[in-house]
Amino acid sequence: MTGKKTLYADLSLLLVAVVWGSGFVVTKNALDHVTPYYLLFFRFIISTIILSVIFFNKIRKASIKDIKAGVIIGLFLFAGFAMQTVGLQYTEAGKQAFITATNVVMVPFIYWGISKKRPDKFDLAAAFLCLVGIGILSLNSNLTIGYGDFLTFLCAIMFACHISSTGYFAKESDPYVISIVQLGTAGILSFIFAILFEGTKMNIQTQTLIPILYLSLFSTMFAFLVQTVAQKYTNSTHAAIILSLEAVFGSTFAIIFLKEPFTVRFLIGCIAILISVITSETKWEFLKLKRD
């Protein structure tokens, strides 16, 4: 793993965080006109079809190992998005963005368990500081958590498993194949849950077409393909912390477009998360270089 490839991978993950941050606002608006599981079904199935056409030769030559890896990752992906999308009906977009980002604290330990690679002290410190920042932003004065917040926290656990399993399988599998298979798996499960819990009548309105296409092409197809490829060249803890910046972007977009309130707590929480990212990414090496 070269330093340049790692840098490009991390910058790519930062772009993914921006796209995912915008996705909170788009999803919040879309849920006013379409039910959660059908929204998930359309965003995943459209992405799967387009990627399957583009990378048809890779899918045709896919190994059983790659397909199994994609299915496992897809199960975590569906569980995370199902809880997140349903939960967003009961909480604010900005708040959900930061609760979702708590997955950054879980990833080093989950990946440690599956790969036996122990996180270093900087990763652990960064994860803890990130958790503090998220707590400042998300918890009420009486430390209560609502139904939507609880579902979002469960979604964070699933996303931590998703990032960890992606990092584990992407090293040995074809990232394009497992990207397509994971999205297809999530799409099929979304359709099954839509039929079971939302009925067979799909009430898709004209104003939902642009949000669905945005979520399909950018927040899903582009973002997960870039994430999977990038995680071949950077570790899961780095990926989790960079991707947790979606919380900062999500809350910023929510303030701008949904008119959610800007507070001092928001600012302090963002600063804490930013420091956690710097800690994980640089190990504060630039301070050592100055002293030398």
Rank of each mutant, 00 (worst) to 15 (best):
L267Q: 02
Y37I: 05
V226Q: 06
M1Q: 05
T85F: 06
Y8P: 02
S47A: 11
S179E: 06
P261M: 08
A126D: 04
L13G: 04
A239V: 10
L289V: 13
C130E: 13
L7H: 10
I136C: 03
V16A: 02
N140E: 08
K28W: 04
F222E: 04
T35C: 12
Y147D: 00
S12W: 09
F98A: 00
T208L: 02
T279Y: 12
K58W: 12
F262V: 14
K68T: 03
E92D: 11
R43W: 01
M202G: 12
D66Q: 07
T185R: 11
M202Y: 13
V34F: 06
A101Y: 09
L7P: 01
K171P: 09
I50D: 04
V277C: 13
I163D: 12
T2D: 08
A9P: 08
L51M: 13
F253Q: 09
L217C: 08
G146S: 08
A30K: 02
M83D: 10
K116E: 08
A254H: 03
E172F: 15
G74P: 13
L88N: 00
T220M: 09
F193E: 10
T6R: 15
F262S: 09
S47W: 08
T85Q: 00
S244W: 08
L31K: 04
I212L: 02
F24C: 05
H33D: 13
L88P: 04
I99N: 04
F169I: 11
G3C: 02
L258K: 05
M158S: 15
I45C: 14
I210R: 07
M202Q: 10
I180S: 06
V229N: 15
Y233P: 04
